[in-house]
Design a protein around this nucleic acid. Structure first.
Lengths: 350, 350
DNA sequence: ATGAAAGCGCTAACAA
DNA sequence: TTGTTAGCGCTTTCAT
């Protein structure tokens, strides 16, 4: 348990100064061959390894990017979409020799988490301007890139065109004759606030509203559920209410919710999509599900990569354009079918 | 882009000393009400937030745990077993207000990665003593807990009883009459070295050998494949060779390999388990696969949690027992069936 | 209750 | 080429 060998120890032992030692490790060209060799030899003998904590502090860099998660690590990593984003971030971090730090909201406080973070830049997921993360980051001079945040001039945010994606998603159900729809939303802490109006949830809702209007769906035929967490289990919990409302189609903002819902249906002998259709959002690795989920594909990996790249552009002082929209696409799976006939007749001339 | 406000700024602005400021934030009892209030008020006005980098450096703590991965972040997070371990680690980190840093081997060098890491403790996955990570950690005074490492006195390692688990896995195939077996191993960098003999791969191989011996299987009826990476794609690549060798059962050290193999089989009209059986290892969330995979369940989440707890025991100076074995179990899925009759007759009186 | 000052281990501007 | 020394921003001992 002996204390770690320091640069001072090595300086003394080798008969050189701390500067020389530092140069021996970080700037060979600024020191003579002989000195360098001697120093390194003694370093080896003493088992000296420069302390990265001190080095980073002195350099003012941490060689680490932070990933601010919307929920617990435990919960987030249950969502393959988030895992995919993490993979994208990790890829780019490695290319730059950086580590990737997972930062969950601490004791339910994002602020405390952000205040305590020791990273060169923070990539957030699912936070909005109104959450105050942006201004806090600003205050402590911390570069910020958002994923699935609000589309705002102030900060870079990597997004798909959520409004159109949601429109497309719902429309693919409406086209098949569905008229009684359940919509399952992501948790939206700031939905109420004015600034939240530009958030991802709000944008998707706008897309839904437009689609509903375009197809003349009446308000009373739409049920809206706001999940308290984006999990499989939460999906299962919602399923019963959905069925009770007589919807013929469920539109979710997350595949993982959709899976939960489908699993509940299966346990209750409700056929998907014969009795009720389900269409998800994300397109998490569906190769491993029983049936291919009908869904909207949004490239998590790509989003992560893009965000991290933007971050390094920022860090390395490169010019940054506004973050580009990442493309989405429709995945035709096996969980979306035509609306059941009986229901359809209820709404007549269609 | 103004520089961040420092403790010195605040000291000057508030008319107090740096000490007072520090106390105002970290030790209210050591300062007068009035002083504290005044300081905090000015802090607020100046937008002062203590810099965690300096604070951590000064305290000699990072409030971060490192997770040393066996491969790229990108690749590792493709493996749900590893994601599960990460979740377990993350859970405990959060309980302690810690962040979790993902540390991949940098430029293919674990050493460089470990040398540069700024964490309070390092949890490794899949490394052995012979990889030298242990002694390096020792050298820089970095607490270490291993997952799936060697069973060794020197370091704590969280494991299941891999030898018996492997035995059980293979035996469940042998019991069903399989006599021509393919074994797909994890990548094993240090399998050759003497110390590697206690590693996870070696222990499982020992289990396999014992099972093969107990059931009198001849060497020439066993095919051994060592994957270069633990991925779905690698599994698919191996599948063709497996079929070519005429095995009736594939035993893999990882579910993800098994899934890859099965997917290849399906694409080539080979029925699982009618034509060939597959039994995996890990039991990654099989709820989302087409058919339940026959496999050995090892609790990744539990391993992560246990490892992190041991780490905090270490960090907080608690006594630590030797790491306990985490229990495994057999999952009876739908991909392991009796050996095909034709093959069986080849090997007669059974 | 308060403050001066000495660290923490390293980097790097500056002087020799 | 080499060494002296002043930071980096915070914590904390030890006087006062």
């Amino acid at each position: 348990m002996g204390k770690r060998v320091t640069i001072a120890d090595l300086a003394k032992a080798s008969g050189y100064s701390k500067t020389a030692v530092s140069f021996a490790f970080n700037a060979p060209e600024r020191i003579s061959q002989a000195a360098r060799e001697k120093i390194l030899k003694v370093a080896d003998r003493l088992n000296y390894i420069p302390d990265p904590r001190a080095r980073n502090f002195s350099l003012g860099r941490q060689f680490t990017l932070g990933f601010l998660l919307p929920q617990d690590i435990e919960t987030c990593l249950l969502n393959p979409y988030i895992v995919d984003v993490t993979r994208g971030l990790g890829r780019v971090c490695q290319e730059h020799g950086y580590m990737l730090s997972l930062v969950p909201p601490l004791n339910d406080s994002v602020y405390e988490a952000v205040k305590g973070v020791t990273v060169d830049g923070l990539v957030t997921m699912g936070y909005l301007l109104s959450d105050g993360v942006g201004s806090l980051a600003d205050q402590i001079n911390l570069p910020l890139v958002m994923i699935d945040g609000g589309e705002d001039e102030t900060f870079l945010s990597v997004n798909i065109d959520d409004e159109n994606a949601a429109y497309t998603q719902l429309e693919s159900a409406l086209k098949l004759g569905h008229r009684k729809i359940s919509i399952v939303s992501l948790p939206a802490p700031s939905l109420q606030s004015a600034e939240g109006a530009r958030g991802i949830v709000a944008r998707r809702l706008a897309g839904y509203r437009r689609a509903l209007a375009d197809y003349g769906i009446r308000d009373e035929d739409v049920n809206f559920f706001s999940a308290s967490a984006t999990t499989y289990a939460e999906g299962q919990l919602t399923a019963a209410s959905i069925v009770a409302r007589g919807s013929t189609c469920v539109v979710t903002m997350s595949d993982i919710q959709a899976y939960g819902i489908i699993s509940w249906m299966e346990c209750h002998d409700i056929r998907v999509p014969e009795d009720i259709s389900v269409i998800g959002f994300d397109n998490i690795d569906s190769f491993c599900f029983r049936r291919r989920l009908s869904t909207i594909s949004q490239p998590g990996f790509e989003k992560g990569r893009t965000a991290a790249r933007l971050m390094f552009d920022l860090l390395e002082g490169r010019k940054v354009e506004k973050a580009p929209l990442v493309p989405f696409s429709v995945i035709e799976g096996e969980t979306l079918g035509p609306a059941p006939q009986e229901q359809r007749s209820n709404y007549g001339n269609n």
